[in-house]
Amino acid sequence: MTIAATNGTPGLPWGDAEKAAWRASKAKRRSYFDDVLPQIDSLRSALDVIQYGELDYGDDGRYPLFALRSRDWNDALPAALVTGGVHGYETSGVLGALQFAQRHAADYAGRGNLLIAPCVSPWAYERIQRWNPHALDPNRNFFAGSPAGESAALWDLVQPLRGRFLLHIDLHETTDSDETEFRPALAARDGKPFEPGTIADGFYLCADARNPQPAFQQAVIEAVAKVTHIAPADPDGTIIGSKVVAHGVIEYDYVPLGLCGGITGARYTTTTEVYPDSPRATPEQCNDAQAASVCAALDYALAS
């Protein structure tokens, strides 16, 4: 049963009572403190670990927010931001960012500065949810004065460095639950009818419509194609309802939509989308695809 069938009154946006009922229904299913923080802590010998905020969610607990930063940070070098877990349920975004940090970050020492925020939304990670506990989507709330604590904390971390970033890659997934749970919930929350869509089978990228950098996007697609399959367009030439502008690439207007990918003003930006529910992909492949996308993005950006 979807959220849309169990919360609120059809045609009416949720109020505080409906949001509270939604939050109360979200049980903890895994642990940020057991799964993610030990992996971050294990990287202290190679990277600086910085706490950039803390989320206080009352009875649900307090969540410290951590980022990994190049130990040899050099302001003369370009910077790259890697973000994962903006949507906490998108597991390979978190694990892919950590895998990149563990296996590949050292390869870029002395070539560029790395800032990696592997789990932007820990409450949602624990509950395998898209939204934060206030029924806000962090990936629609990246702007000054954001009401989403996850978005506001990352915004505050990044803004002092704005203008120094060459690259920002934001790691996401598209899952079957987008169609069965999260999109119906969005329609119910906003008092709108649910309109069924489709889920793309494979990896794809979402570029910034105002700064698409098509050669850069294709370099990432070509690298990931060696790891897992790239999503084909639907018969109408779209992926998740957006026009396919190149093999495996769609575009969104990052900044007006409040997307994470728009926070740096970097020359090269992209948002990855892995499909973990595909019968053609394993969880390991999904993590590998995310790490490969970061490496390919960095290699292209630094070579340029």
Results as ranks from 00 to 15, higher is better:
153 A>G: 01
20 A>K: 11
210 R>C: 03
280 R>M: 04
233 A>K: 09
195 E>R: 11
281 A>S: 15
263 I>L: 00
108 Y>A: 05
178 D>N: 15
193 P>F: 02
54 E>N: 11
152 A>D: 13
296 A>G: 01
144 A>M: 04
35 D>W: 12
208 D>Y: 07
248 G>W: 02
78 P>L: 14
304 S>M: 10
167 L>Q: 05
224 V>N: 04
5 A>E: 15
102 Q>D: 04
62 R>S: 07
84 G>P: 03
248 G>D: 05
88 G>H: 11
169 I>C: 02
55 L>T: 08
266 A>I: 10
89 Y>D: 06
67 A>I: 13
260 C>T: 14
175 T>L: 13
101 A>Y: 02
92 S>Y: 02
161 L>K: 09
91 T>Y: 13
85 G>I: 04
20 A>G: 03
122 P>Y: 05
63 Y>T: 10
106 A>H: 13
257 L>S: 10
127 R>H: 14
231 A>I: 13
39 Q>P: 02
75 D>W: 07
275 Y>S: 13
83 T>M: 11
292 A>D: 01
51 Q>F: 00
251 E>W: 01
159 Q>A: 10
14 W>K: 00
271 T>R: 05
74 N>H: 12
168 H>F: 03
184 P>L: 09
29 R>N: 04
173 E>W: 09
84 G>L: 05
42 S>M: 11
33 F>E: 14
93 G>M: 03
99 Q>K: 09
161 L>Y: 15
197 G>N: 08
112 G>M: 14
76 A>C: 04
124 A>W: 05
212 P>C: 06
182 F>M: 14
120 V>M: 08
255 V>C: 00
191 G>D: 10
149 G>E: 06
118 P>S: 05
231 A>R: 12
298 L>I: 13
150 E>P: 00
32 Y>L: 02
26 K>F: 01
114 L>C: 06
152 A>M: 06
201 D>T: 12
254 Y>A: 08
299 D>N: 13
165 F>R: 11
293 S>C: 11
97 A>T: 07
37 L>T: 12
